[in-house]
Amino acid sequence: MQPPTIKPVSDSALLLEFENKIDRSTNQQVLAVQRRLAGDALDGVVEIVPSYRSLLIHYDCTQIGLERLQNSLLELLASYSAEQETQRLWRVPVCYGGDAGCDLDEVAGLHELDTNEVIRLHSTAEFRIYMIGFAPGWCYLGGLPEALHTPRLESPRLRVPRGCIPIGGQQGLIGALPMPSGWRLLGQTPVRSYMPGREPAFLFAPGDEIRFYAIDAKEYASLDKAAERGELLIEAETL
């Protein structure tokens, strides 16, 4: 593994930057270091936030000095070996098209594909959650087939529906609560990535594998009711 660059971020955080690209092995390294750090529970480390290719470590400088933290990190990185990650796989139902998937036809048109072919490509793709960010439970997915790489909208929509399943650039997404977004909407899932008050409130984690499958509007409606009652609807398979 190429060692990450360690950069201080003002007085209360350190940024570990790994290779500057979006790919599976870089993201696996980020998450492996995150798990290792979380396991070590260094005094003064307040919060560890992973993303595609970097890790932000929040710390309390009244408890641990910058130099000591940097040294602990270097030690950890030197002794670290990339262990196999335990992976979870989720099969996520999606109702493609309709109001919540209003860009489906346009995406098909842009790529000169049949609408059904767009659905087939999206629902057979092997997605991985690279990062959860922006808003609670918003999962950024790598693994979108090249045939579906699509520029984002020029001006974002002010509100996209709960549970939207959009694509943008080279990425896929699982939406949670309604938010502004400039991504192209392909459909909607009844699964709540985040539901306040439910146990667990959050379903997914960075590193999880995602596969989508198509459901019709009737199935959507009945699953949506169950989700509204607090049911998770799906279970993770361990790979």
Binding site: A13, L15, I22, V49, S51, R53, S54, L55, L56, Y140
Partner: peptide, 8 residues
């Protein structure tokens, strides 16, 4: 490539 941000 999107990465974590913080207040400030």
């Amino acid at each position: 490539i999107s990465d974590p941000v913080l207040p400030g």
